[in-house]
Computed example of a mutant assay.
Amino acid sequence: MGDGASRAARAIAEARRIVLKIGSSLLVDSQTNAVDRARLEGLAGHVAGWIGEGKQVLVVSSGAVALGARRLGDGARPGGLEGKQAAAAVGQSLLMAAWASAFDPRDLITAQILLTRDDTETRRRWLNARATVGALLDMGVVPVVNENDTVATDEIRYGDNDRLAARVAQMIGADLLILLSDVDGLYTADPRTDPDAVHIPHVESLTPAIEAMATGPNAGIGMGTGGMATKLMAARIAADAGCATVIASGGEGFSADARSTLIDAATTVSAAYKQWIGGSLAPRGRLVVDAGCGRALADGKSLLAVGLISADGAFGKGDPVAILDGAGAEIARGLVRYDAGDLSRIIGVRSADLAAALGYEGGPVVVHADDLALRR
């Protein structure tokens, strides 16, 4: 086992939450356009093994369009974007059925999740999707994610499932992204045409020199819509979110001990998320808290309704807000769990009295500690 393989194996062994992306070239036989069931069962075995070790695993799976096109046949499928969307609509159910049949013997339940780019870039939808996926993972379910090709247009598409997988890894706070296709990692040149191409087992940082390798002779490696360039784009997204990336081949059956490329995370998951909240989002409102609440926030606690003095702004659930002390100094920023209208009804209200004030059970947390970044 070489250095690259050992690093990747350690990364997998230490990971808590894994996103496994599988390209269509691995799932669908290029000659018949039928599902490669033996390969799916092998991959399902890996996932089941990881879950048995206490990990949480989400699968990003391509293949719906190819399977749908096969079922429809050339004569039945219209051309253009509509034809591809129709094929995706037919093929997605076939794809999920194949995954369910691979996981059923291992007593694992699968769940279908179809996303467009808006779902990971619009805060409210992002929060809702994150909560749903988190609940599924906590229940031991295997979410199977694909782009919603039936409704996605060029304006709202990810364009390839490498970047979709990276955005999903960012969304759920994964610490490892595994990109499986028909290539076993990054090379200095295209190994199919250059016998002197050198495999790169470990990348500490995605420097311009490293990224340039993927825009040159390596760009076309991979049979799907991506290639090495999109894999490194995905790795950049993941690294900035605190997630390491393994680029590996699943062509002969995936193995953690096989040759691959490990790309290190640039930060931690928690630090990246806090930075996003504190430095990248413009507040939509302002919450003023009392001194006791301010001390609790500094100690890592959540913001509760009872600690609020006032709130202003036209914000909705999931929007970023600035949190101020009684003197008007900003002490934190966070994602609020109530819209402005409901929050105005529970300012200073004790937890036991919230349901009566709201007319429903909304919970005492206004901004959860996990969604809050302190201002240093």
Rank of each mutant, 00 (worst) to 15 (best):
F103G: 00
A88H: 07
G79S: 14
T116L: 02
A322Y: 05
L308W: 03
T245E: 05
V60Q: 03
P78D: 10
V321D: 07
A166R: 06
M96K: 08
L67P: 13
D353N: 07
G334N: 03
S93R: 09
G253M: 01
N161T: 07
S280E: 15
L20D: 05
I221N: 06
G226I: 12
G292Q: 01
I237A: 06
L297V: 12
Y273M: 06
R284Q: 05
A356K: 13
K317Q: 11
A48K: 02
V288R: 09
V289W: 01
T188N: 10
A305L: 09
G279W: 06
D184W: 09
R259I: 15
S344W: 07
A44P: 08
A355H: 14
H202G: 07
R7I: 15
A197H: 10
S101C: 02
R376F: 06
A355F: 04
V269L: 02
A76P: 04
I247G: 11
S351A: 14
T267Q: 05
V59A: 00
L180R: 09
D3P: 15
E155A: 15
T110M: 03
R236K: 13
I331L: 12
L94N: 04
A272L: 03
V367D: 03
D3F: 13
L297Y: 08
A272T: 11
A332C: 08
A212G: 05
P191E: 11
Y158P: 11
A244S: 12
L26H: 01
V306D: 07
A340F: 01
Q170R: 12
V57C: 00
T215H: 13
A87K: 03
L186W: 11
L94I: 07
G279E: 15
V60I: 11
D138S: 08
L114N: 02
T153N: 13
L137C: 02
C243R: 04
T188G: 10
L108T: 11
F315W: 01
S205Q: 15
V141D: 00
A265D: 06
D342V: 06
T267S: 08
G222Q: 10
D257P: 04
N128W: 12
A369W: 07
H199V: 10
R37D: 14
V59N: 01
A189F: 11
A34P: 00
T150R: 12
T150Y: 08
S249V: 14
I178E: 05
N161E: 06
K231C: 02
L72Q: 04
G224V: 13
S6F: 08
E147I: 10
G318V: 04
A197Y: 06
S30K: 08
V57W: 00
S62E: 08
G173W: 01
G75K: 13
D107P: 05
G134W: 06
A305P: 06
T116K: 01
L304P: 05
D74K: 10
G73W: 05
R10L: 12
G251Q: 09
V366W: 10
G83P: 10
V183Q: 15
G91H: 07
A209Y: 04
Y158N: 09
V349Y: 04
A311K: 02
E147R: 03
V289F: 02
I309V: 15
R333Y: 10
I51A: 00
G63C: 11
D3V: 14
R192N: 14
G359E: 00
E330H: 07
V168M: 02
D107M: 05
L186S: 12
A214F: 02
